[in-house]
Computed example of a mutant assay.
Amino acid sequence: MNNLRQQFIAFSVSAGVLRFGEFTTKAGRLSPYFFNAGLFHDGATLAKLAQFYAQTLIDSGIEFDMLFGPAYKGITLASATAVALAGKGHNTSFAYNRKEAKDHGEGGTIVGAKLAGKVVIIDDVISAGTSVRESVDMIRAAGAEPCAVLIALDRMERSGKDGELSPSSAVQQVSQEFNIPVVSIGNLEDLFTYLNAAGADPEMAQYKDAVAAYRTRYGV
């Protein structure tokens, strides 16, 4: 439990953002765990989350010029990560989009710095990859280059229905489609490692078995 990824999982659990039980996903699956980044909704937890994003990006070695946060969760995540990066000596600009274009003030759909150079897209998770695709289109339309996607948790989960599951996960599909790396602070393997480390706790043991079964059924 001494590396960044395990620290992130433990932090998410303690903050009530990563929960165990029975949850229905967007795909209609019954999942034994649920991750909701929207619950990082106070100053202290958001600041700590931003530290994880910033350090993960630095550790990745990816060269970048700015950050982009897709509406809506990505707006807070990108701005908080920019603050955390500045605190680590990496001052960088950021931008985000609004859902509807303004016809006054600065106008348009992009707010913040001008999209330029190599841009990292910051989001919480990748489900269907829709927000990433929209972000890539906006970045390229501005003449900039999407160079990576940084997310909090990679569920490492195949899409589709039972019997027709895709061979790769949504994260892998996005990476292959746009030929850019997708970096996560933590993933399903890290979650499983966390549960194994807490195996002496009977309550955690039941979740470990449920997560293992879910991983076998849907995981990549």
Rank of each mutant, 00 (worst) to 15 (best):
149 V>P: 01
160 G>N: 06
60 S>R: 03
93 S>Q: 11
137 D>S: 14
65 D>K: 13
160 G>T: 09
127 S>N: 08
102 K>C: 06
113 A>V: 04
185 I>L: 14
76 T>N: 07
37 A>Q: 02
22 E>Q: 15
218 Y>Q: 04
124 D>W: 07
141 A>R: 13
86 A>Y: 02
125 V>H: 02
197 A>V: 02
95 A>S: 15
118 K>Q: 15
169 S>L: 08
179 N>Y: 01
206 Q>S: 12
23 F>C: 07
138 M>A: 15
205 A>V: 03
75 I>L: 13
60 S>T: 07
218 Y>P: 01
133 R>S: 13
89 G>L: 01
51 Q>E: 15
107 G>Y: 00
174 V>N: 08
103 D>Y: 02
44 A>M: 08
139 I>V: 09
33 Y>N: 04
170 A>C: 06
216 T>S: 14
109 T>C: 05
65 D>V: 09
42 D>Y: 07
182 V>D: 07
113 A>P: 03
67 L>S: 10
11 F>M: 09
28 G>H: 07
129 G>S: 10
193 T>H: 13
149 V>S: 03
94 F>Y: 15
123 D>P: 06
17 V>L: 08
6 Q>F: 05
113 A>I: 05
114 K>S: 12
97 N>Y: 03
175 S>M: 03
34 F>Q: 05
144 A>Y: 06
193 T>Y: 10
162 D>S: 11
220 V>H: 02
46 L>G: 01
143 G>N: 06
95 A>D: 03
201 D>W: 09
75 I>P: 04
152 A>C: 04
47 A>Y: 02
28 G>D: 06
161 K>Q: 14
105 G>T: 02
165 L>Y: 10
47 A>Q: 12
174 V>H: 05
55 Q>N: 10
46 L>T: 13
197 A>M: 09
26 K>M: 11
173 Q>A: 14
96 Y>H: 12
136 V>N: 10
213 A>Y: 00
134 E>W: 02
23 F>Q: 09
216 T>L: 11
13 V>D: 11
73 K>L: 09
161 K>F: 04
189 E>C: 10
160 G>C: 10
163 G>A: 05
177 E>L: 14
51 Q>C: 05
91 N>Q: 12
38 G>Q: 05
156 M>P: 00
22 E>F: 04
198 A>S: 13
181 P>A: 06
153 L>M: 13
72 Y>H: 10
122 I>T: 09
26 K>V: 11
49 L>R: 01
155 R>H: 08
136 V>I: 14
104 H>L: 05
43 G>V: 05
9 I>D: 08
185 I>M: 12
183 V>Q: 02
33 Y>M: 07
168 S>A: 13
46 L>V: 14
154 D>P: 01
160 G>V: 08
49 L>F: 01
131 S>P: 05
67 L>W: 12
47 A>V: 00
120 V>T: 07
74 G>A: 10
168 S>D: 10
89 G>K: 02
133 R>T: 08
220 V>P: 11
44 A>I: 09
184 S>E: 11
210 A>E: 08
43 G>N: 10
5 R>G: 01
126 I>M: 06
74 G>Y: 03
176 Q>H: 08
36 N>D: 15
1 M>C: 07
189 E>D: 15
20 F>R: 06
66 M>F: 09
128 A>Y: 03
